[in-house]
Design a protein around this nucleic acid. Structure first.
Lengths: 198, 198, 198, 198
DNA sequence: GACTAACCGAGACGGTACGTCCCGTCTTAAG
DNA sequence: CTTAAGACGGGACGTACCGTCTCGGTTAGTC
């Protein structure tokens, strides 16, 4: 997914070693959980994966890219798009799966990726397109259908609502002053429904 | 405010050099704007400030702490607490001054500080208490008065509203997909007012 | 000879860069002559050799070790062992080549190495084995042959004679109150010959 | 003795604090024995002596000067000049007191002072005049009397003999391959006596 | 007895070098 | 041609001391 190189491989020479590939992703995640993102280094990943540094540099542009791929490769990425006919129910299901996808492990990775995105504009682009906008668009679809069905006022600013929802979620993930939980999700559904015609 | 060390100074010994102190804060901000936080180093700050590295390490635990103090020392920190009797007007004034306080320069610093907070739990604590919670509490005060005046429903969850507001603000500052502007502030006032009694 | 690490090199990995190796030794000697041993720093050697500091630390335990290798790598180390049948003549030749090997440049280096040996027991061991004892043993061989040939009394204490000879030489090199010259060498030959049978 | 400053003291002002003075010398020696000369720092001396750094810099030009004064202040400096009428006996007594004056503690200090002298020409001058030449001259006096009494050949080169004697002594102190002991002293007396008329 | 100059402890200051860590690149032998 | 290994030039780290400079406070004379 983050793979830049197109692998045709009618050419001679050894092919990409899938074992190393996986070992690298695995090692990155393990070290991240063990010592935190700040202490994560390419050298440490290579050492733990039993891999040469060059092998990492050959396939990824930065350690953040490794972590991003390790993260997106995990199942956690799937966000089913509910379409029950009821906006309230769609939202409840969407938020439920969002909640379900993210534990503390996930939050740790997200904080690391966001930190990197804040420091490296190049990575920020990747991160936004692969992760942030993908989520936004999914929820945007749900809300748009809500408008189409007349369950939200026609003049509602969907982008503002998306900012509200993901704003809160990221804010809690980053600041860690309160957990992401069902109560929050319920409150968000309620908040959004206040934008129904009346 | 950000000073960790309690300076009694009936003790002997040379006092802290205020000129150097200020030069360090100034140098940090300048370099930050010039080259970005990633490229900011203690050595560069010391060099530009014309100061020994030890003088920085003597007074701050990390470069992030320097930036935080430089940031909070700037006037930009003042958030007047409006109390007009009208919740809507209080909110409008509060948001207006929030907006006014932060230009792109401010956003740049905030992204840097947040990145650091995400990577360094120790710094995160400082940052939250000095900046994040201070802001939250201020707005919390405004909202509480709104409840007391009966301008918000008694059972509203103020913490949730604070998360919504600061969630959006941080989300835009961090993701940079849209600007903080008056329209947004207006929308937030409107959103909050939807929690009025009827 | 001074190489500590045993280099097998059937192992993979880039080999030691011989150009850098030599540049380091050269730079060390140049800086030593320019500014003196006290002013000699690893950083300066690295800078002048156009080399990373780590490359020096990788191969030598201290700057003294660099200087020692630079010194011993120079031809100046060769001490031919004369064996003419005549003790007096052997001594004359041995002292002549000793004298010839060492100019003021050499004395400068020897003073530096001795200073370091006095301050660093670990280095002292190396220095003694590579340099001091090597010289001692060579002259010891000459004297032993003198005894075997009956040109020195059988009960002479060769170690004492060695201490006398190298004591004087080092004393003059270190204290610098008088030069090492042919007259001195002649006097030493004469002194030793006083230990002949009659 | 090593005092540079001429103290007239008709002027007002506090006089030198003798307690601090002694504490500094004491602290220097203790630290030297504990950790070696390399690890000896002005800061450590000041700390252990309970003294400000400035107080040291006010009275001594370098840490070596402190050690030198601490050393010379010790009784160990007294070398009685024997004059028994017999060269052999004079030498025996002279060497005996030399031996007696110097234990391992002394040797440690001498190695430190010599190391410093090798690295700092300014200190070398002081050291030579205060210590090295003083000893040389004393023994020179003994030998001169030996010549005058006809117990050494008239054409003997006294300076050469002095180099032999102190060469050996320093060589053993510095290289530490053999102890200074009575046997050595006996051998040196014997060696010198070989320069008697016949 | 007050004045005053020098000394004292503490400790901050600008600076230099230390030895270490990692970066991203390059060069091997092996597969 | 890729891989693991590992040396390379480079840059910043955080620390240790250097020798200097202020501080408040003490001490001992001279006036």
């Amino acid at each position: 997914m983050t793979e830049q190189k197109f692998i045709d491989k009618n050419s001679p020479g050894r092919r990409r070693n899938d074992k190393s590939h996986k070992a690298i992703l695995q090692a990155a995640l393990e070290l991240l959980e063990q010592d935190g993102y700040r202490a994560l280094t390419i050298e440490a990943i290579a050492a733990r994966a039993g891999v040469g540094k060059q092998t990492i540099y050959r396939w990824w542009p930065s350690k953040a890219a490794v972590v991003l791929e390790a993260f997106t490769a995990n199942a956690a990425m799937q966000i089913p798009l509910p379409d029950t006919g009821s906006l309230r129910q769609d939202l409840q299901e969407f938020f439920a799966s969002t909640l379900h996808a993210g534990g503390e492990r996930t939050a740790l990775v997200l904080r690391s990726l966001m930190a990197e995105a804040l420091l490296d504009p190049e990575f920020a682009d990747q991160f936004k397109h692969i992760f942030i906008y993908a989520r936004r668009n999914a929820l945007g679809e749900v809300l748009t259908r809500g408008v189409e069905r007349g369950q939200l006022t026609a003049n509602v600013d969907i982008d503002f609502l998306l900012d509200l929802v993901y704003g809160v979620i990221w804010y809690r993930v980053l600041v860690q002053h309160a957990a992401l939980n069902e109560e929050l999700m319920e409150q968000m559904v309620d908040m959004i429904m206040r934008y129904s015609e009346k």
